[in-house]
Write a protein that binds this DNA or RNA. Sequence first.
DNA 1: GAGCACTGC
Length: 714
Amino acid sequence: MPAMVSELQNGHRSADNRTEDSYAVKRMQIEQQRRSLPIASAEKRLVEEVRKNDTLIVVGETGSGKTTQLPQYLMKAGFSDGGKVIGVTQPRRVAAVTVAKRVAEECGVELGKKVGYSIRFDDTTSNLTRIKYMTDGLLLREALLDPYLSRYSVIIVDEAHERTVQTDVLLGLLKHVKLLRSKSSNGVPNANNLDPKNNFLLGNKNTAEDGSLIQRCNSAKLSPLKIIIMSASLDARVFSEYFGGAKAVHIQGRQYPVDIYYTLQPETDYLDAALITIFQIHFKEYAGDILVFLTGQEEIESVERFIREKLQQLPEESRKLLPVPIYASLPYEKQMQVFKPAPNGVRKVILATNIAETSVTIPGIKYVIDPGLVKAKTYNAKTGVESLVIVQTSKAQALQRRGRAGRDGPGKCYRLYPEIEFLKLPDSTVPEIKRCNLANVILQLKALGVDDIIGFDFIDKPSRMAIVKSLEQLYLLGAITDEYKLSDPVGIQMARLPLDPMYSKALILANEFNCLEEMLITVAMLSVESIFYAPRDKLQESRASAKSFSDPEGDHVTLINVFRGAIDYLRKSEPESSEQKTEKKLRKWCKDNFIDSRSLKHARDIHSQIQRHVQQMGFSISSCGEDMIPFRKCLAASFFLNAAEKQPDGTYRALSSSQVNVQIHPSSVLFRKRPDCIIFNELVRTNSNYIRTITRIDPMWLIEVAPQYFALQS
DNA sequence: GAGCACTGC
């Protein structure tokens, strides 16, 4: 600080020189770093390959620099000339943001000008943006408005090996767009099922006749779209075959070596084995932190307890081991503990779910302990029931986990199973699209003009049963017609909303039931993870607090009470203050009320986004006031597929899936009351079949609001 | 009276 003051006193000139100097030094450092990346020597070759091939697969291991460098090479080579954009998609928001910041810095430009990012709730791009980082889901939404993706000359799909639903749908879409654009540039009209004329979201026929988007797209000569698929998995074959034998280029990675150790015998108790391994490393190995992959919160908490207990039994000087938990539902401040260096001479042992596999990169890890298990979602298309089951990892996943030990130096990876078991593991994880409800995917594809879903060219096709089941669900919601076309206006409106189809339907109906204000809050709150936070050491307090929001009719109104509680607090405390101040106050209110502040913030963001959407659709925000009956009726009308009836033995039967032995989850405000007839938000199988987030309804309402469906049932 | 891997629009 004093140095800075004296510099200022010495006059501007010297201060400026200093900044210029340090700027030059920094630029030189950046250039040096860029040149030292493994990909740097391949610049010329990569640019050549992109020129020659319309589709290219780039296989590059961690640390190759592909994500930051390739877009810059392409910009330098002129691919973004003429106002075109090089788009790079990421599966995760943080990645899009951090990479964009880094690249802007490397280019020496201000973020949001030449280099920018765009993610939900946060768009830093402008007309000047030539390299745009974004989430793949966002590009899919963009495609609804611009089916040719006409602004883009190149689209780079990064981390394609992760095979998220969005990536898979995007790959299918890009394949079609490429075809469309190559045809359009040859002047041949599009004869494809992805005809933008079928694109309902572009609005009614008038828009087309007005000569806006559609005509412009058809008449403009679009250059062919360059597609680059970037993957870290060594096997490029799947992508190459999918894109008609596209060329694959391999880029060296830069990782330190990681030795692998297997157990001789299979372990009967992997938690115990993990504990023993932790202490072996602690006593015998050099300094360096340990990362242990566990399957969930409960395991993490019990391992943490065991470690602390065991440390108590050790002599003082051997206690220098610090367990640090991390999992997604842990509050943000506590998550940040993993980045804090341990006190001198103390070894950190990080107990993590697979959040540490890709989402969070923790520096300083030298040892990885991998029991080879993961909690994965599975979906039963027949019953529509989701469950979380502990399964073995794939080889690819084991490889990814191992890599976490080799980021800062050579490391060691302890797999708690014999080598022969590793060889038996599946090569890669089953793509998510084969493990989930497809209603949303189908709705989006329909909105993009794809009518034949069963015939759609998925890279991995979901089962026919799963597709049919989701089509049926969309039909029952009124989103598609007898001919499997998107319905007008309901289907079109539903596709516009970035929500689960059932939530979108609830908003459309709420407009008729005059409770749109309440339903907006409800779907925003339903769209986020657990709102209530119950720390183990303050269980009583947190329960009492949760109770103060509870409504006798159920959890949906309870959620509304929480949301409105926050708004009331803000209004009363200081109605007009800066955004930062508001956030700070909100965090305090959340802390006092045992509400997860990240979740509430997220819900508020979703709320304002969705509110804008429905207003654009011409809805006015109506409220049912004190009388919640219309609201609950509207819930019944929207979630009738999730209705359940109490059985003589006190358990419930889900009406649409005929799932029996269903129980109300103990977190529900109706857990003890057990009303005769309810609608629920989700049915998840864990130890038992649980329905979560529940509201009491009158069974007669079901016949009133969904007669076609419930007449058939009885 | 239970216990929710992880993302995304």
